[in-house]
C-alpha cells in the first residue's frame, strides 16, 4: 500500500533472502509487520496487506520449527546481526580494494536495511548505528558516482 511505501525495500529484501537465509528473511518480515502497524494499521489496503503478512509469518514460524533462532529472539538477534555484518564487511572490503561496483552498492544498502531490522530487538549500539549510517551513505555515494561515470574514492 502507498502508506507503507517506506517499507518496500525491506519487503523486497525479505523475498530475496527467503532461500539464502530464511531466518533473516523471517525477522525482516517481523520488522515490516511491527513498523507497518505503527504507520498505518487502519486503512483497508494496509489491513489487507498486514493480514497476509501475518499469515505468512505464522506459517514461516511453523516451517522453521527446528530453528532456535526463530524461537529464541536472543539467538535470532545474534543471527541477524552476524548476517548484516557479513554483508557489510564484504561491501567494505570490496570498496576499500577499489572494486566499488553495483553489487557493492546493493550490499551496503542491504546491510543498512538489516541494521534497521535489528532495531526490533532494542536500541542499536553506537557501533552498529555508525555502521548503519556509513552503509547508507556509501550506497548512495557509490551509486551516484557510477551513475555519473565518476570513480568512487
Amino acid at each position: 500500500p502507498q502508506t507503507l511505501r517506506s517499507l518496500a525495500h525491506h519487503v523486497r529484501t525479505a523475498a530475496e533472502l527467503d532461500k539464502r537465509d530464511p531466518v533473516t528473511a523471517y525477522y525482516c518480515r517481523v520488522f515490516v509487520m511491527q513498523t507497518a502497524m505503527k504507520i498505518d494499521s487502519r486503512s483497508p489496503e494496509s489491513r489487507k496487506f498486514l493480514g497476509g503478512l501475518m499469515d505468512n509469518l505464522e506459517k514461516a514460524k511453523k516451517e522453521l520449527a527446528d530453528r532456535e533462532e526463530v524461537h529464541d529472539e536472543v539467538v535470532g538477534q545474534c543471527h541477524v546481526e552476524n548476517y548484516a555484518l557479513q554483508i557489510f564487511i564484504y561491501a567494505d572490503n570490496e570498496d576499500r580494494a577499489g572494486r566499488a561496483t553495483r553489487a557493492v552498492v546493493r550490499a551496503f544498502y542491504t546491510a543498512s536495511l538489516l541494521f534497521d531490522v535489528l532495531s526490533l530487538f532494542g536500541e542499536l549500539s553506537d557501533e552498529l548505528m555508525e555502521k548503519q549510517r556509513y552503509a547508507r551513505w556509501k550506497a548512495t555515494y557509490i551509486h551516484t558516482c557510477l551513475k555519473n561515470g565518476e570513480t568512487p574514492i
Binding site: 502497524m37 489491513r47 501475518m54 514460524k61
Partner: peptide, 27 residues
Amino acid sequence: GGSIGASTASGEQDELSQRLARLRDQV
C-alpha cells in the same frame, strides 16, 4: 456507521497486535 467502522478497524488492529505478540512469544 462511522463508529461501527472505527470499532471494527480497531478490533482488527488488536487482533493483529495479539497475533504479533504471540508470534514473538511476548504474551
